[in-house]
Computed example of a mutant assay.
Amino acid sequence: MNEKYQKIINKIQDAKGIIIGASNGLSISEGVHIFANNKDFQTNFGDLSVKYGFHSIIEGCFYPFPSEPEKWAFFSRLYNYFLYNKQVSSVMKNLYELIKVKNYFVITSNIDDHFRQAGFAKERLFEIEGNCSNLQCSNSCHDQIYPGDEILSKMNQHQEDGKVPLDLIPCCPVCSGPMQVHVEVDRNFLRGQSWQESYQGYQNFIDNVQGDELVLLELGVGARNKLIKAPLMNLTILHEKATYITFNKGTELFIPDTISSKSIGIDGDISDILQQLVLMK
């Protein structure tokens, strides 16, 4: 196993570019599980679970709350759970330590904003499905994305009986309509200028490392994922000097025969794997 770890370290050190692809498995390794009805969920959302009948964070994200005060009670708690007074996890610290001096770009479907929190540069992030700390107009009447940290924190602190006071609920400064967290939970999700710039930054990064040693570092992406895994695998095929490296558990660790000769996979806990790599670095 040490030989495999050393090979990964060598590939990362020699790479002219690193693309990090991350999904739910990375969050789980941090102790954040949006699909689980676990102790954290019950502590932070238990009363809402009883009232509305959803049993995980992801179900809450898609729940059709009957009013704005109730909707914002959930989403401000979501922000609080992910970010407020939270220290950067050892998982994210180790990941950043591993690649911080490299030419990197991150593509992720995680909405917890933990990459930015850990020090990853905003201009090197493509958060495909948004993140929980930004706001947008629910009517998508204009392209602006707004930082929501202050108002989300305030709404979380002042809610009562599962509702946020009306005077704290944000309204669109353009159309005066309702706002929502910039997370892809419905058809209103805004793929405006900010989203398009992140997407273009990702595409430009790929173009700029054409012909160079490229590492595609995939963290906790499901075996059937089409949003991140399939494109990274395709890049592995297209780029002659690409190496596909994936960390996952059990059957979720999937490497097709078409790229097996250019791939390294480790079956295990991402937290433990990253810790070992940093110690050997």
Score class of each variant (00 low, 15 high):
R124Y: 10
R124N: 00
R124D: 02
L125G: 11
L125K: 08
F126K: 09
E129N: 13
N131C: 03
N131M: 02
N131Q: 06
S138N: 13
N139Q: 11
N139M: 10
S140V: 05
S140H: 11
S140D: 13
C141H: 06
H142F: 12
H142S: 00
D143H: 04
Q144N: 04
I145R: 01
Y146C: 01
Y146F: 01
Y146T: 06
P147G: 06
P147T: 07
P147R: 03
G148V: 04
D149R: 15
D149W: 12
D149A: 09
I151Q: 04
L152W: 14
S153G: 10
S153E: 15
K154A: 00
M155Q: 08
H158N: 07
H158F: 15
D161R: 01
D161A: 03
K163S: 06
V164L: 05
V164E: 07
L166Q: 14
D167C: 04
P170F: 07
C171I: 02
C172T: 12
C172V: 14
V174S: 12
V174C: 07
V174P: 07
P178V: 02
M179Y: 11
M179V: 01
Q180H: 13
V181G: 00
V183Q: 01
E184N: 11
D186F: 09
R187L: 13
F189S: 09
L190D: 05
G192I: 01
G192D: 02
S194C: 02
E197W: 02
E197P: 03
S198H: 11
S198M: 10
Y199F: 03
Q200G: 08
Y202W: 08
Y202S: 12
Y202G: 13
Q203K: 15
Q203D: 11
Q203T: 05
Q203S: 12
F205I: 10
Q210K: 08
G211R: 01
E213P: 11
E213I: 06
L214Y: 05
V215C: 06
V215R: 12
V215F: 12
L217P: 04
L217M: 04
G220D: 12
G220S: 10
V221W: 15
V221E: 03
V221Y: 15
G222L: 07
A223V: 10
A223P: 12
N225R: 05
N225I: 04
N225Q: 07
K226V: 04
L227M: 08
L227A: 07
I228A: 01
I228D: 09
I228P: 12
K229F: 12
K229T: 03
K229Q: 09
A230R: 06
